[in-house]
Amino acid sequence: MAPPDKEPPSLEDIDARLRRAREKELPGDGLKTPSSNLGRAFTLAVEMAAALAVGGGIGWYLDKWLDTKPWLLVVLLIIGFAAGVKNVMRQVNRINVEIEKQERDAAEQAQSERQKNERQKNERDQG
């Protein structure tokens, strides 16, 4: 809470000041999604391997249980492979959305920068 003896600055005022300070200190969003290409590639590999492992694992266990060696293992490995491809594709779509968002943000930022520069230039010319 603000001290009662002093009139606190209005929230709008603080917000405007914060935004100004942020613009000065942090180009763009301060809490940008951290991402690296290596991490993305690794994610895809793990996604594929996990689905294969689950498919193979279930197949192996069912084979042991139902005594159908090796047929269910083969079938479920293939299904696991398909599931892996599906997961990888979903992940790739997610990454694409992320990249597009980053590019859009960068473009927006460049534009606002340009506008700011122009404004400053105009002010200088007038002054």
């Binding site: 793990v46 996990a50 689905a51 689950v54 279930i58 479920l76 299904i79 599931a83 997961n87």
Partner: peptide
């Protein structure tokens, strides 16, 4: 009959890929 097992396996694979990613990194 083909797609449902694929969906189920891809669902079960979630915790594995989630944990392996962090641990392996």
């Amino acid at each position: 009959p083909v797609l449902v097992p694929i969906e189920i396996i891809s669902y079960i694979a979630r915790p594995i890929s989630l944990s392996v990613r962090l641990f392996a990194n």
